[in-house]
Design a protein around this nucleic acid. Structure first.
Length: 799
RNA sequence: GCGGGUAUGGCGGAAUUGGCAGACGCGCUAGAUUCAGGUUCUAGUGGGGGCAACUUCGUGGAGGUUCAAGUCCUCUUACCCGCACCA
């Protein structure tokens, strides 16, 4: 039976949609299963086959779960705010709303052509008012709970575009838009206090089933370290310089201090510092350095000694100089460090360059050659001398610091608070009003959504201001508190806002009273399985865990973690082995593949091409193998007979077992391979029973659902194959009565013999020795050892 | 620099977790079908040697443990990903 996929595939897609086959039931007696895939950013380029691979994994799991009797939710939506759309709008003068709608339409049609079993009644679009109203609502809740604050910080600024850029948009120190050099600029920005949840993120990781490397990356990203804060006294000034260190026990080796160029102590003591001009000049130089230069010049330390401020080592009482240098960051710890040149590579390089004393306090290295960062006995350290265990010496020093009131235990995180604004048009307006009397006031909840006003010019303003700043009717408003004249915040939320809670909205997408109904949230949460790209493991995953945990603390969601399980798929590379990109011209459009081969072949191929989690290059001729496979499956309808080869029966049960288990581990390539293997066996046998074919159709259906439905109809199956019962295997039938056992002599394969299942050891060895091919190597020699692993191998060791 | 990972035929990749390396697919070779291209079918296909049965070498490299190593241990090389002056 060769069928015309061009006619058959749309036919079944229509039937599925009309019957609502893939609609999740809100509340049901069936067990629920919530599969989540990362919703796409609807770019103008449309989807490429990488999206198809990303969705095909849980698509197969979802289809299998439905057939196993679960009430499955497998939703899709669009993460539609973002720079590319806005840049396109600037270039062409088309409103981002129009561009977005057009792109969503294109993505939708592409996804539907592939026959994904998404619940299309639950589509969310982050740029719709009914959605971003709740994004703003959650933001205001965070503000109510003290998680929103404003601070002045260094930001990436493109002097050419006059735009503040995120780190993601300024990689390599170049502007993503015009490729000119980025400078660091001081600007007031909004922050979400995500660090408040740092320990909760770490604790939560113990309770979820994420891939080990996913967990590891999150742990590294959070970067928890324990150590101590120490307050250094300053000579002649009643002020302390506070530092953070992980090795307080090296305090006796401190010979100087370094503070970040932006450290406030400089401004506070301007008149006391005699070389303030030199410091200012250095500071300016640092601001000009691009990210690229800063990372390239790691080895070559620069800095200026502060003339006029001197610190005192709190344990030795020695006077030590203070430097400013850009190797100390304002954003980590306190923006100041105690330098221990003998045991820190950066401090060592700095001390060498500036001729500062280097005092050894841990024995074991040669500090004339370089810093020693290993363990060893403490020396030159007064009461710590003789300690050899790091833990003990740190504990002893902490005790001392706390007793004298000059320091205490402390914890630091690499993770920083979340800079939560962009000077851009195409994003959620931040619902805040600046009132000259009341200060910062949140927009009242009943006024949400705070609508994004229509504008004609989307270009950012001078000095990196949002395009919204030019809309007077938007900017000027009344203070919600006092009613006086006030101005609206004109920045918008960053790209990552809308995606931080979309999985909650799927549960109740049309609710206009709440972000979702509590009963429904209780039924559906947590997401049972979330699959996506490794690139989202730190940012998006942490951000959304943050929002979810916050909502949990408020009692809005019933689980402390949003995702019970997280896996990741590998990229599809271009046919040339490079990452697919428009500029390289190696992008494969799924529409082109569907046109020529059909959706079933595309779906099967993206899962067959290699290990699901690894990257693999696109290879069109290899895809032809999948087409052959499906064509040959289709032909089986003509091979039905009342009798079939008895050997096939166990092959069927083995295959059903393998496919069932492999799907659970995302091992689709071997699942498909085992079905191909079975198919070869069927062709060898020449016929199969209707019942066997029914089984095969059902296990093929998650991969090639259109073909499966068509064949299901042909063999008189009831209802939709997509909702038919997933076949079960009979474990007893997956084992053969005789097994092939390899026989080795001295570890080298000499023969294979057929033995009954679970043949006793003695018998197996005797049979093996009787084989002439084995006897040739054994006869006339002394047998030293005989090993027999049941059903696997016999090894005879001779001399 | 830190963290994670990978390395198996001409190619993508398998290998029940220490037990017959190369499943499955692509490609290739020969043959059949075809006016021809494509399709389809049959047989073969890791390297060396041999007409053949067979034999020998073989999982980035060097050692080691074991009756037995792609798999475990030590050292080493190359590449990929994430973070990066994190005190």
């Amino acid at each position: 039976m060769k069928y015309d996929f061009k006619q058959v595939e749309p036919k079944w897609q229509k039937k599925w949609e009309e019957a609502g086959v893939f609609h999740a039931q809100d509340i049901s007696d069936k067990p629920k299963y919530y599969n989540l895939v990362e919703f796409p950013y609807p770019s103008g380029a449309g989807m490429h086959v990488g999206h198809i691979k990303a969705y095909s994994g849980l698509e197969v799991v979802s289809r299998k779960r439905r057939m196993q009797g679960y009430n499955v939710m497998f939703p899709i939506g669009f993460d539609a705010y973002g720079l590319p759309t806005e840049n396109y709008a600037i270039k062409t003068g088309t409103h981002p709303r129009i561009v977005t709608d057009r792109n969503i339409e294109k993505f939708t049609s592409q996804l539907k052509r592939v026959g994904f079993s998404f619940d299309w009644s639950r589509v969310v679009d982050t740029t719709e008012e009914s959605y971003y109203r709740w994004t703003q609502w959650i933001f205001l809740k965070m503000m109510d709970h003290g998680l929103v604050f404003r601070d002045t910080a260094l930001v990436n600024y493109c002097p050419s575009c006059k735009v503040v850029l995120s780190n993601e948009d300024s990689q390599g120190g170049k502007c993503d838009i015009c490729h000119s050099d980025i400078v660091q600029k001081s600007k007031a920005v909004w922050y979400l206090r995500i660090t408040e949840y740092a320990d909760k993120f770490l604790e939560g990781l113990e309770t979820v089933d994420y891939l080990p490397n996913v967990k590891q990356q999150q742990v590294n990203w959070i970067g928890r370290s324990t150590g101590a804060f120490v307050n250094f006294s300053l000579k002649e000034i009643d002020e302390k310089l506070r530092i953070y260190t992980t090795r307080p026990d090296t305090l006796f080796g401190v010979t100087f201090m370094v503070i970040a160029p932006e450290h406030p102590i400089i401004e506070a003591n301007r008149d006391r510092i005699r070389n303030i001009d030199a410091l200012d000049a250095y500071k300016e130089e640092c601001a000009k350095k691009t990210e690229f230069e800063r990372t390239q010049l790691v080895k070559d330390k620069t800095g200026v000694c502060i003339d006029g401020l001197t610190a005192i080592n709190p344990v030795s009482g020695k006077e030590i100089p203070i430097y400013i240098s850009d190797y100390v960051m304002m954003g980590y710890g306190t923006g100041a460090i105690m330098a221990v040149p003998a045991h820190d590579e950066r401090d060592w390089a700095f001390a060498k360059k500036f001729g500062i004393d280097i005092i050894e306090v841990i024995k074991g290295g040669n500090i004339a050659e370089g810093a020693y960062t290993g363990d060893g006995e403490m020396v030159n350290s007064d009461f710590l001398n003789g300690y050899t265990n790091k833990k003990d010496s740190i504990a002893r020093m902490l005790e001392q610091l706390e007793a004298e009131g000059i320091g205490e235990k402390g914890v630091q995180y690499k993770m920083k608070d979340w800079a939560f604004n962009r000077q851009r048009y195409w994003g959620e307006p931040i619902p805040i009003v600046h009132c000259p009397h009341c200060g910062i006031v949140g927009v009242p909840y009943e006024e949400l959504p705070l609508r994004l006003p229509a504008v004609e010019n989307f270009e950012p303003g001078e000095g990196g201001e949002s395009p919204l700043a030019k809309i007077e009717s938007f900017v000027n408003c009344k203070c919600p508190k006092c009613g006086g004249d006030a101005k609206r915040e004109t920045d918008t939320m960053p790209q990552w806002a809308g995606s931080s809670w979309y999985f909650l909205r799927y549960i109740d997408p049309h609710n206009d009273k709440a972000l979702a109904d509590p009963e429904k949230l209780k039924y559906w949460l947590p997401v049972d399985w979330y699959n996506g790209g490794m690139e989202h493991v730190t940012r998006h995953m942490i951000y959304s865990r943050f929002w979810h945990k916050f909502l949990y603390d408020l009692g809005i969601v019933p689980t402390s973690e949003p995702y019970a399980k997280r896996t990741a798929q590998g990229l599809i590379l271009g046919p040339d082995g490079d990452k697919m990109s428009k500029s390289k011209g190696n992008v494969v459009d799924p529409n082109d593949v569907v046109d020529v081969y059909g959706a079933d072949v595309l779906r099967t191929y993206v899962l067959f091409m290699g290990d699901y989690a690894s990257a693999a290059p696109w290879n069109e001729s290899s895809m032809k193998g999948c087409k052959r496979f499906l064509d040959r499956i289709g032909d089986l309808v003509d091979m039905i007979s009342d009798q079939s080869d008895p050997k096939l029966e166990s092959a069927f049960h083995k295959t059903v077992k393998k496919v069932s288990l492999d799907i659970e581990e995302l091992k689709f390539n071997t699942a498909i391979a085992s079905m191909m293997d079975l198919l070869n066996k069927i062709y060898d046998a020449g016929s199969l029973t209707r019942e066997q074919l029914s089984m095969l159709i059902r296990i093929v259906s998650p991969f090639a659902p259109h073909l499966a439905e068509e064949m299901w109809t042909d063999i008189g199956g009831e209802g939709f194959c997509s909702l038919a019962k997933w076949p079960e295997w009979d474990e007893a039938k997956t084992v053969d009565s005789t097994v092939e056992v390899a026989v080795q002599v001295n570890g080298k394969l000499r023969a294979t013999i057929a033995l009954p299942l679970n043949c006793p050891k003695d018998e197996a060895i005797a049979t093996a020795k009787a084989d002439p091919r084995v006897a040739a190597f054994v006869d006339g020699k002394t047998v030293i050892k005989e090993i027999s692993v049941p059903n696997k191998i016999v090894n005879i060791v001779v001399k």
